[in-house]
Structures are given as structure tokens and as C-alpha cells.
Design a protein around this nucleic acid. Structure first.
Lengths: 185, 185
DNA sequence: CACTAAGCGGAAGAAGATCGTCCAGTTCGG
DNA sequence: CCGAACTGGACGATCTTCTTCCGCTTAGTG
């Protein structure tokens, strides 16, 4: 592979992640190409179609998500760790990327076992952190890791909130032990 | 206006509200027509274009939103009233409609003063209810009506949550006085 | 009942967006 | 310096939705 081709490839991966984070997984290929500073032809030579691009970005960036979780899990206070991690994931410019990784189509997942393995590991580690926070008495016991992921996904739809960080923390407050209120009905 | 035409008009209004609630304000006109059981020609005869349809639905349905608020405001406990009302607004099949009403384009609003008046009144009444809940000590004082609306809007993006009612209540718990946690940084 | 005008449905063409291909021209690297 | 590798972006295909139009249907009147 020629040096310039290699350079363009990494520019494309970078740009695709940014573009997906900004516009969601359905971002036009031409936007990705423009952002990378290459023509669409170059983009299509590396990734024959959109699924191939999504799969590549997914494999590449699920690491980031998982690594950050591993780092924040070292914090002794599990609730603080969770709070920090959730804020990190839902930060502007990252939430849509994370959402896209969670929602990668099934056919792509099945054809990329390494991606599937990493993502499962990520979900399990997040569940472990949730259980720790609950065991330490800071997080209400009636909330599951699925609730957490569902609430996080709310923040991935663009244009929803002016101040996502503020609203994210308001939401997190609802998951604390002190906040527990019986569900009506 | 002929009797059958009148019948079709109300079927269209009904269907449009449902379709917008389900698919958002950008729902194809053909979907609205199909749902109403009429041809697209009939739809376009009543409403020359999409803005006309949105404006009509907006004028018609902002009443519902406001009336329900008026009713629930009679509840002596403001926090309970708010909780009830928010759950009502965000119920499946209604949240997207409410979101669409909040997000009606500016040009439509300016050309429909009656709609604008009603919507402003709705926002003011909601703010009053929030202030009451805060005065009664049930709702944290650092939350504004804009926060509430922003959080509600999160639920309007389709497919976000499997169990919106559950997640809505988790979120509401974060707005209680007991839940207040200092924002980081 | 018969007639007419209002109303109807949906085919069809316009408009816009994105996809994915292709090739003439450029650049790398031996 | 040469050829193979690579590039950009114009272009035709395809898909989606909008909107118009017109031949047929039907309500409602006399």
C-alpha cells in the first residue's frame, strides 16, 4: 500500500467517526469523504459500501468506549465512576457514535465476531459497575443496566437538548437511591 | 360542503395527528392519506401543502395539551399534578405529537396567531405548575420549566426507549428535591 | 328519478437526495 | 524517468416524497 493511500485511509476512519458522531449512522458517504478531504471514489475504494464502513468504524471505536470504562472503573466509588463514565459517553460529539455502536445492524454484528465479542464485554463490564454502585448503596436497586443504556440512548438523538450535560446529570439524579419513588400503578 | 367531504376532513385530521404522533412531523403525506382511508388528492384539496396540514393539526391539538394541563392543575399537590401530566403528555402515541407542536416551524407560528397564543399560554401555565411544585418543596429549585420541556423532548424521538413510561418516571425522580446533587465542575 | 356540481382516487411526472461507478489525470516510489 | 497505484468528482441509476391532474363517482336538489 502506498504511503499516500495509507494516509488517506486513516483520514477516512477519523472523519467517518466524527461524521457518524455528528449526523448519525446514516450520514451520506459524500459528507464523510468531504470531511476526510478525499473524493468519494477514494472512500469507496477502501470500503465497498456503507456496511463495510460502519463495521470498520465499529471495530475501531468500540475499543475507546471499553477502554474508558475500564479506566473509570478503577475509581473506588462505583457511583462516581458511573457518573463520570456516563457523562463521558454522552458528551457532545461522542454520544451519537456510542449510540451507533449499540445499534449496529445484526447482519454486520454476526459477520464481525471480534466486534461482537468486544461489545458484549463492554456491556458486561458496565453491568458489573452498576451492580457495584448498587451494592455500595448509592444506586437504587430497581434500576438495571438496560435502563441505563436506554436512558443514554435518549441523548443520542440529535437536536434533542440544548444542554445535554445538564440534562444528563438531572437524569442521573433520578437513578440514585435517595430519588426512588414508587412507580404509579 | 358536502356531507362526505366533511366526514373525510375529520378522518384526515384524526389520521394526521396519529401519523405525526407515530412518525414525527415529516411523515409522508401519502401515509397520512392512507391512514385516513382517502387518496392523496383528497388530502391535498383540503390542505394545499404540508405546512397547511401541520398548522391545522397544531391549532386543533394544542387545545388537548392545554386542556389536560388545566385539568391536572386542579390537583392540590402540584408535584403529583406535574407527574401525572408529564406521564400523560409523554404517553406512547402522544409524545411525538406534543414534540411536533413544540417544534412547529417559526413561519407557521407567525402566520397563525391563535396557535401562537395558545401555545404561549400552555408554556406559561406549565411554568406556573413548576413554580407551585417548587414552592411546596417537592421539586428541586434549580430546575426550570425549560429543563422539563427539554427532557420531555428527549422522549419524542422514536425508537429511543422500549419502556418510555418506566424511563420517564426514573427521569422525573431526578427532578425531586431529594435527588438534588451538585453538578460536577 | 335524473341531473349537476362537488368530490374522489390514484397514476404520473417533477424534484431532490444519495448511491456507487468509472475514467482521465496525478503522484508515488523504485 | 516510468509505470503502477491512486485520486477526485462528474455522472447515471435508484429511491423517496411531493404535487398536479383528470376521468370517474356520488351527494343532494328539483
Amino acid at each position: 500500500m502506498r504511503a499516500d493511500a495509507k494516509r488517506n485511509l486513516s483520514k477516512i476512519v477519523e472523519a467517518a467517526a466524527e461524521a457518524i458522531a455528528e449526523h448519525g449512522a446514516a450520514v451520506p458517504m459524500s459528507v464523510v469523504a468531504a470531511r476526510a478531504g478525499v473524493g468519494v471514489g477514494t472512500l469507496y475504494r477502501r470500503f465497498p459500501d456503507r456496511p463495510a464502513l460502519l463495521a470498520a468504524i465499529g471495530e475501531y471505536y468500540i475499543h475507546h468506549l471499553h477502554d474508558a470504562l475500564t479506566v473509570s472503573s478503577r475509581e473506588p466509588d462505583a457511583w462516581q465512576a458511573l457518573r463520570w463514565y456516563v457523562a463521558w459517553v454522552a458528551a457532545p460529539g461522542r454520544s451519537a457514535l456510542a449510540g451507533a455502536l449499540v445499534d449496529v445492524p445484526v447482519d454486520i454484528v454476526t459477520s464481525h465476531p471480534e466486534f461482537a465479542r468486544r461489545r458484549t464485554q463492554w456491556e458486561e463490564d458496565l453491568a458489573t459497575l452498576v451492580r457495584r454502585a448498587q451494592a455500595e448503596g448509592d444506586m437504587r436497586a430497581d434500576v438495571t443496566v438496560d435502563d441505563l443504556i436506554a436512558l443514554l440512548k435518549l441523548f443520542t438523538c440529535s437536536g434533542a437538548a440544548d444542554d445535554p450535560v445538564r440534562h444528563l446529570h438531572l437524569m442521573l439524579d433520578g437513578l440514585q437511591t435517595a430519588a426512588a419513588t414508587p412507580m404509579p400503578q
